[in-house]
């Protein structure tokens, strides 16, 4: 039977929706439409003249080596952050699920990094890995690795991936742990009697049953890697060295607000939006089908 609430007044449902709609319109639809419009304009640096150029900004971008590099960098970065963040969180959750003594302390400590703002997290890692004063850089030096992410693009990429993943691990951990604790104990016991060792149990029982959580986190983490990591990039590398960590969202900012190329910046944000929408649709269409909702 269908459950449906019928409102007596015609305006009441609209009034109830109004606050959310207002927020969506003011903070999403309006800026998004402005970005769409601006992506087809070219302004001079002082904003004295504006020219409508159709899709010239986009054509220019896809012919620009810098922008193609930024797409590549974003792909590496977001895959790195998502995979590392999910894998480490899953491992920690699996281990924390087994611990009984002092479980609360472990869990609290593991959740802490989530309370740290991205820029602060970035600065934290920056200090640790600073080539001249960072303690980790010093240890690495002792181990024969010359660490200088200010010169070495690969190292810069590794550093921002670590910093961004580290921050997200707590969030992922929390969801994975909750997901694991929702799995009835007797299922694990049944599997233990059915001759499955801990590792096999994890891959044949726990992981498949966690798939709704994993799927949700996959979507959240990719969106995080695409957008929310701005603060970390800004604090640690500012997209450098030599564009090595210039992810798309950072390039939107640096081209628009430092380079003052508003048209190109708007075009980039439109592309970014399109990519995230596509990724999310793809995830829902193709990955969700394999998800077990129990």
């Amino acid at each position: 039977m269908e459950k449906r609430v019928v409102f007596r007044h015609r305006w009441l449902p609209y009034a109830l929706l109004a606050p959310q709609l207002a927020i969506t319109i003011v903070f999403f639809l309006w800026p998004a439409s402005q970005a769409l419009w601006q992506s087809m304009l070219i302004q001079d640096a002082f904003g004295l003249s504006v020219r409508f150029v159709w899709f010239d900004n986009f054509t220019y971008l896809f012919n620009s080596r810098e922008y193609l590099n930024s797409i590549r960098v974003t792909a590496i970065f977001s895959v790195g952050v998502t995979v590392l963040g999910l894998a480490v969180a899953l491992l920690l959750a699996a281990v924390a699920d087994h611990v009984i003594k002092g479980a609360l302390a472990y869990k609290t400590l593991l959740i802490w990094p989530y309370a740290v703002a991205p820029a602060i997290a970035g600065v934290l890692w920056l200090f640790l890995f600073n080539p001249s004063v960072g303690i980790v850089a010093w240890w690495l030096g002792g181990a024969g690795i010359t660490w200088n992410h200010q010169i070495n693009g690969n190292q810069a990429m590794q550093l921002v991936i670590f910093a961004a993943a580290w921050k997200q691990i707590s969030y992922n951990f929390l969801f994975f742990l909750a997901g694991m604790q929702a799995i009835p104990r007797s299922l694990i016991e049944a599997a233990a009697i059915d001759c499955a060792g801990p590792v096999k149990r994890f891959f044949t029982i726990i992981f498949p049953l966690l798939s709704p959580t994993t799927f949700f986190l996959l979507v959240v983490n990719i969106v995080y890697a695409f957008f929310d990591t701005f603060g970390i990039i800004h604090a640690v590398t500012r997209g450098g060295p030599a564009q090595a960590t210039n992810i798309m969202v950072y390039k939107v900012y640096s081209d628009g607000f430092i380079g003052l190329n508003l048209g190109s910046s708007a075009a980039q944000s439109v592309i970014l939006m399109a990519i995230v929408i596509t990724l999310t649709v793809v995830q829902f269409r193709f990955i969700e089908r394999r998800v077990q909702y129990g």
Partner: peptide, 27 residues
């Protein structure tokens, strides 16, 4: 438990929800 060669039927059955009946029995 695996090495004891026993089988157990639980109060809540503890069937693996993501597996078919066949897979449950064959596991």
């Amino acid at each position: 438990p695996a090495e004891r060669d026993i089988a157990m039927v639980f109060q809540n059955y503890a069937l693996y929800p993501h597996m078919s009946v066949r897979q449950n029995m064959a596991y």
